[in-house]
Amino acid sequence: MRLLRLGLLVLLLGPPLLILLFRFVPPPVTPLMLIRLAEGHGLERQWVPYEAIAPALAHAVIAAEDNLFCEQALGFDIAALRGQIEAWREGERPRGASTITMQTAKNLLLWPGRDPVRKLAEAWLTPQIALLWPKRRVLEVYLNIVEFGPGIYGAEAAARAFFGKPAAALSAREAALLASVLPRPLHWSAAAPGPQLRRRAAIIERRVGQIRPLLGCAG
């Protein structure tokens, strides 16, 4: 019983303590990075502060992944989640309602996949991040750990690998291309975009202009 209580205490207090620590300290590595290393990919990353990343990238990522990021209180898009539940009830395949805060929780502390256990853990961690971190910190961590290509993590490593420049110098089109690859970073390349990726980047660029009033938290 003592071991059980200790295990429950670790499960309850461990994640909040880690999340609180990572509010101030850059995470040294993530589970996904270790998994990709075991799969034979490299590990290129360079942590940079949010101010050293072109605002265009944060704007493009919000436009591509989570238009209402700045408006969410607990890190969930409630309307999108309701839509997914309704789709599931009607026998349709849910298309996903993942927010940037949810993706940050997954990328920072969990493993890839769509299994129910991981989804429950993600739902448990997301509001903790939303409550313990300011929006700018969520973006900073996400843009520094997200996978942009095989073995390439974070804005700085991606900007240098694909465009030969620091993340601070990314153009709006380059930022849109990087945001475009996020759904399939092992298959799509921002350095050699095909027609589908170029079309997706153009849509993201247009959407940035359309949602600009919703980008206040991104600077």
Rank of each mutant, 00 (worst) to 15 (best):
A167N: 03
P112Q: 11
N144V: 05
P55G: 05
Y153M: 14
L108A: 11
G14E: 13
P213A: 06
Y50F: 15
L13D: 00
H59S: 10
G219Q: 12
F163W: 02
K119P: 04
L110D: 06
R137T: 14
I78M: 08
I100A: 06
R93K: 04
A161S: 14
P112H: 09
G14P: 06
I100M: 14
W47V: 07
E71K: 08
S98K: 12
L178M: 04
A54W: 04
I211E: 08
I204H: 01
T99L: 09
A191R: 03
G149L: 07
R173K: 14
R23Y: 07
A167C: 12
L132Y: 01
N67P: 00
G149D: 11
Q128E: 06
L32P: 01
E205Y: 01
L68M: 10
L57P: 07
L139G: 02
E51D: 13
R82F: 10
L21D: 00
M1I: 13
L8K: 10
L186T: 03
M33T: 07
A176S: 07
A202M: 09
L132R: 01
G194L: 05
L4Y: 08
A64G: 05
L13V: 13
L108G: 00
K165A: 15
D115I: 06
Y142I: 05
I62V: 15
L182D: 06
